[in-house]
């Protein structure tokens, strides 16, 4: 039997544990659309920067989690993948926390000037 014939005799679904759930995909799409509209509407309130960052990043994290859980099929994924992702999250946290916890930055010291053309015009 040729490789191709042998290959064709195997059901391709045998290696893929994720049975598609179309209803779930549609529900996730609706949730993503609603959250996108929400984050834009909230931005029109012109909240103080810290509150704006908190709300925008919270909504973005929920949206990203929905995509990863259902579209990327992390729900019901093999433990090995969870292990890879846990390690990634661990190092990403270091990547964020170490530079941001720099005392000079926390104390609000200006480390450089950043003037846009619009800011100059004002």
């Amino acid at each position: 039997m040729s490789d191709r014939a042998a290959a064709a005799s195997i059901d391709p679904r045998v290696h893929h544990p994720h049975r598609p759930e179309v209803n779930v995909y549609v529900a996730v799409f609706v949730a993503l659309a609603v959250l996108t509209v929400t984050t834009v509407l909230v931005s029109y309130w012109h909240l103080p920067i810290l509150a704006a960052v908190a709300v925008a990043m919270m909504i973005a994290t929920v949206k990203a989690s929905l995509v990863a859980t259902f579209f990327m099929h992390l729900k019901g994924e093999r433990a090995f993948i969870y292990g890879i992702l846990a390690m990634t999250v661990f190092f990403v946290l270091f990547l964020f926390i170490l530079p941001i916890s720099d005392q000079d930055l926390l104390s609000g010291r200006t480390t450089h000037t950043n003037v846009t053309a619009e800011a100059e015009a004002r």
Partner: peptide, 22 residues
């Protein structure tokens, strides 16, 4: 993820240290 996280960290550090940001 590490690649883009590095860029986002760069963004945060530069924005925190900027005198003005649009």
């Amino acid at each position: 993820v590490m690649l883009f996280a590095t860029l986002f960290t760069t963004y945060i550090v530069l924005r925190l240290g900027a005198s003005e940001w649009p």
